[in-house]
Write a protein that binds this DNA or RNA. Structure first.
Lengths: 234, 234
DNA sequence: TGTAGAAACTGCGTAAAAGCAGGTTTGCTA
DNA sequence: TAGCAAACCTGCTTTTACGCAGTTTCTACA
């Protein structure tokens, strides 16, 4: 059972505000959910009853597209929110789907509990507000990048994002994604990702050990997309 | 002087919460700013001191791109927020630029005042939070559309968005944008927009009177992009 | 109301991205 | 550890989008 008092996810908004005595009752209603790798725990369009936090694990968040193409919108790791408005907003339905990339433990709060506690603890609501505002800013940056970067640039940007988000060990990214996942995040096709990765390998910028990818030359990759990233977030 | 008590923008988050007595002092510190057409009143990257609301007028919000290409991120009209986190978030700088599309009156609040009042009135903070969450959801929809729609589909989607946002009179949109603006919102080039508009005119789906555009056949346009919009927000 | 400059438009060549079909590697499981 | 399915890769063709250069139309203003 994931316990907020001993939780080590200091970036978690609940954890950050857990010293407030008013939060105690709220925490009693928390549910802990275990998810196997590849398990989908939010389906786009289904009624939203609440909101999740990743306690431990990795999650991909996506919006359904046509054919078998989906658009991966973001990734989440320990301490991060999943499920966005979770039903307490204007829409009563989840606007995204979420799937565990590895065995993952989730914390779950019902929308009613959440709404109550948010209206009771202003600093918590304020933190939530800032979280959404930051996510919005990032999402808008992504809009621009998808509209203006070439496919090669988008793939490079994705690799750097993965490194920043999940880190690397021995020059290999700490997350295992399919080429299709890279495509669905970069906004292109699987073949295109494969072709570009293949070129990047030949150029000595990127590494591959089995299905795992690694970055060999951060500087060169960052340089290549720098014209899109001057003075801007991420 | 724009006055919240008599303001008719019922969708404005401040107006909605203006009955709370604690808000009175806050409102005294409000500034009213008049902007001429084409005037830029937020520059991306400059220090953020506060946040704007459109009182009356139309505004485009954009992120700088390379060359002379910018990405228009959203449009704002009466009652809507401009300036996002306005400096009370993690970043101290505006992440977007904003420009008046016509003569526009703006309401302005400093970030310090705003932060104080947000931490004092939970329902206001909650409304702000929902606003950002909704915007985030829309922005993520846009990410998907830019990644998966063809240029023609994106232009059509843009036309329908303009109609929904600003409305039409006598089959002409109530907003005057350059072809470049349409391109910067749709994520393509001016020529492409022109070519597609030209085709749409020939097909009898779209109208043009001088520089003004109008939609003749909403149903056909909606039908054409419907495969991307089933069950989803906008 | 004439005119200059900006905005809108068009044709054509080029480049980028996508789609298809078939082959190879990888890693899981019996 | 053999076998098999999924994932990955590649060459080729087609489609889509872009960029340039020159023309026309529109609109603001003298």
């Amino acid at each position: 059972m994931a316990d907020c008092i001993h939780c080590e996810n200091l970036n978690c908004l609940i954890k950050k505000n857990s010293k407030d005595p008013k939060i105690e009752d709220f925490l009693k209603n928390k549910h802990t959910i275990k998810c196997k790798k590849s398990q989908q725990f939010i389906m786009e369009g289904t009624p939203a009853h609440g909101l999740f936090f990743a306690y431990k694990g990795k999650v991909k968040v996506a919006k359904t597209g046509i054919n078998d193409r989906e658009q991966i919108v973001r990734f989440a790791k320990d301490g991060e929110i999943i499920g966005h408005r979770g039903g307490f907003g204007s829409s009563k339905y989840y606007s995204i789907s979420a799937q565990a990339l590895e065995d993952t433990t989730l914390c779950y709060f019902s929308k009613d509990d959440l709404k109550n506690i948010l209206l009771t603890i202003p600093s918590l609501t304020f933190d939530f507000m800032l979280f959404y505002a930051d996510e919005l800013s990032e999402s808008e940056t992504r809009v621009r990048k998808l509209a203006q970067m070439s496919v090669r640039e988008r793939v490079i940007d994705t690799l750097l994002y993965m490194d920043k988000k999940f880190g690397s060990t021995d020059q290999l990214l700490n997350v295992l994604l399919s080429r299709k996942d890279y495509a669905d995040y970069s906004g292109t096709t699987e073949e295109q990702v494969i072709r570009i990765l293949s070129t990047l390998k030949k150029e000595g910028l990127v590494n591959a050990k089995g299905r795992k990818l690694g970055i060999l030359n951060h500087e060169a990759l960052r340089e290549e997309i720098s014209k899109h990233t001057f003075s801007m977030t991420r």
